[in-house]
């Protein structure tokens, strides 16, 4: 009984603020606080008319799409190569490839700026944001695709080759259709990670905004409930993408 209470309090502590954000995004008061006034969609309408939000939204969309596509391609290539490598090499390679997940995002962001901008002379901007997001998303792609390949029957590829398929035909006609759902799942997870990121984007974007840097900018000037509306949109997008990813890739545990 006491444990249930503890768990309930814990959940309230964890999820309460998020619920409040969603709730206030539909409240008519300009000040965030109770009583919240009547229900309204004003803050969403206001966002829809905000050109700053428009450009931030499209920047996030492009970055998420590019990250999902490119990280899935590079991650899948890495996973395919790793399944053919010696187990000892796989362990150390996985550790190295997963490093960006373990490092503090701040360190990753600084490293990206140092390498790409100071070192290679790329200007700050969306391409660098995308490179940073690929770095963070790729390990998840590798893990998801490797989990799928672990229960992949290599004999199907051999059989295709035996029946006259070239390496590429065997990949396209036999391997790819079998792992497609895992790749879609990995792409969705990558998109969610990209939408979610603030630190790397704020360090590398230079001018302009993604949704998360846009919110941060807004927070420093005004505190109006349209922020709650943005947060709610972000919440729906990332949770929705992740849920969809779990469903599509039939991820179990």
């Amino acid at each position: 009984m006491i444990w249930r209470l503890v768990i309930a309090l814990f959940l309230l502590f964890m999820l309460g603020p998020i619920l409040l954000v969603v709730l206030f995004s539909f409240g008519s008061n300009a000040l965030i606080g109770f009583p919240m006034g009547g229900l309204t969609l004003d803050w969403y309408t206001k966002l829809a008319q905000d050109t700053g939000f428009h450009s931030a939204f499209w920047a996030s969309f492009i970055v998420a799409l590019a990250t999902a596509t490119l990280a899935t391609i590079t991650g899948t290539c890495a996973a395919l190569a790793l399944t053919k490598a010696a187990p000892k090499l796989v362990r150390s390679a996985l550790a190295a490839l997963s490093l960006p997940v373990l490092l503090p995002p701040l360190v990753v962001a600084i490293a990206i700026v140092v390498l790409f901008v100071r070192g290679l002379g790329l200007g700050l901007g969306l391409p660098v944001v995308i490179l940073g997001h690929i770095l963070v998303a790729q390990p998840f792609v590798i893990l998801i695709v490797m989990a799928r390949l672990a229960r992949f029957d290599q004999a199907t590829v051999d059989a295709a080759r035996d029946l006259g398929a070239t390496h590429w035909q065997a990949f396209r006609l036999v391997t790819l259709p079998q792992i497609a759902s895992a790749l879609i799942g990995a792409a969705l997870v990558s998109a969610a990670i990209s939408l979610d990121d603030f630190i790397i984007a704020s360090f590398t974007i230079g001018g302009g905004n993604t949704i998360s840097t846009f919110v941060w900018g807004k927070m420093r000037t005004t505190l109006d409930p349209s922020i709650n509306a943005i947060a709610t949109i972000l919440l729906v997008l990332t949770v929705g993408l992740s849920a969809l990813a779990l469903r599509v890739s039939k991820y179990k545990g």
Partner: peptide, 20 residues
């Protein structure tokens, strides 16, 4: 020659059927 160019065909132990 690679397997795709040989006049042999194989029945694999685990069959290797295409599940899709």
């Amino acid at each position: 020659l690679g397997p795709e160019k040989r006049p042999t065909n194989m029945v694999f132990q685990s069959y290797g059927l295409f599940p899709h």
